[in-house]
């Protein structure tokens, strides 16, 4: 009987496995690869000249500049926050830890459009702090600060979420060892903690960056779509598309797509690297 069963199983496997693989591939091709290819096909529809032409537009320049600026401002803040939050949650027991963990996840749960709207309700002309800001001539909504704030809100879980499980699984014994050897907090962080979390941190930064550059919903609500001033790349793409400038829209989109592809490649490298190091420690434990 066992032999019969085994045979049946392998016969099943003979056609089920390729079928499943084919289905998965077909799905991937249909929903991921085709749109991806479409972006580039559309971008180059009128030749390389028209493609390059898109990027000579000063509005395009300013959109790219603004997107880079937002990413550059978002990442350091999230880096600081992410490491601090992960450190606090992984290393210390305190009241309200659960609440903090839930709050970190909040941006994942809230629709980005709602997130943007919250900032409008807070800092907008008719918002809670609007009159106060107006008196002091500080503009947040429909200006760069609003875009940065909205992006910060949307991206802040990425680094913390990446680090918390990593730091929890590594434990604090190495840090305590460093402490007992006379290292101060700063030395412990730079010489022991950081080297151990560097791959996770890098991965978190990559994800955070990708999201910061690609965020549409939250930014769309607070930006005001002022060309040359508050238009980020995703918003610029929408405007070009709405103006029937398909080549321009897709050319711009191809840049963001390239960013996504680079992110994926770096992510795989980082995962591979950290797995390799992790495997080493695992083997070490078994010995």
């Amino acid at each position: 009987m066992p032999t019969h069963r085994a045979q049946l199983k392998s016969q099943e496997g003979r056609w089920i496995r390729p079928a499943l693989i084919a289905m998965a591939l077909l799905f991937l091709a249909l929903f991921l690869l085709m749109p991806l290819a479409a972006v580039f096909v559309e971008a180059f529809r009128r030749g390389i000249g028209a493609y390059v032409q898109t990027f000579t537009d000063p509005y395009a320049h300013s959109a790219i500049r603004l997107t880079l600026l937002v990413a550059l401002m978002t990442i350091p803040v999230n880096l600081l926050f992410g490491v601090a939050a992960a450190w606090a949650i992984a290393r210390f027991e305190f009241r309200g830890k659960g609440v903090l963990l839930t709050l970190i996840d909040l941006p994942f749960a809230v629709s980005p459009v709602i997130a943007g709207l919250m900032f409008v309700l807070l800092f907008g002309l008719h918002g809670l702090l609007g009159p106060w800001l107006l008196e002091r001539d500080i503009q947040i909504i429909f200006a760069v600060p609003g875009i940065v704030l909205a992006t910060l809100f949307v991206t802040f879980p990425f680094i913390a979420r990446e680090l918390i499980p990593l730091m929890q699984s590594q434990g604090s014994e190495e840090e305590l060892a460093a402490l007992s050897l006379g290292a101060n907090g700063w030395q412990i962080f730079w010489k022991v903690t950081l080297p151990n979390i560097k791959w996770g941190l890098l991965y978190g930064i990559i994800l955070c960056n990708a999201r910061a550059m690609g965020e549409f919903g939250a930014v769309s609500v607070v930006s005001g779509h002022i060309r040359g001033q508050t238009n980020t790349m995703p918003l610029h793409i929408e405007i070009l598309y709405n103006e029937y400038d398909f080549v321009g829209a897709f050319a711009m989109a191809s840049l963001l797509t390239l960013l996504a592809l680079v992110t994926l490649v770096v992510k795989s490298v980082v995962e591979w690297k950290s797995n390799k190091e992790h495997a080493h420690t695992e083997i070490g434990v078994l010995q």
């Binding site: 014994e173 305590l176 060892a177 460093a178 290292a183 010489k191």
Partner: peptide, 28 residues
Amino acid sequence: ARRRRVGFVFQHYSLFRHMNIFDNVAFG
């Protein structure tokens, strides 16, 4: 622990995994 200056050997050794043996010993 930093000020007490005692030598502490941890149960699971807690060696710095990203440092070689020389750097581990030189850390203190």
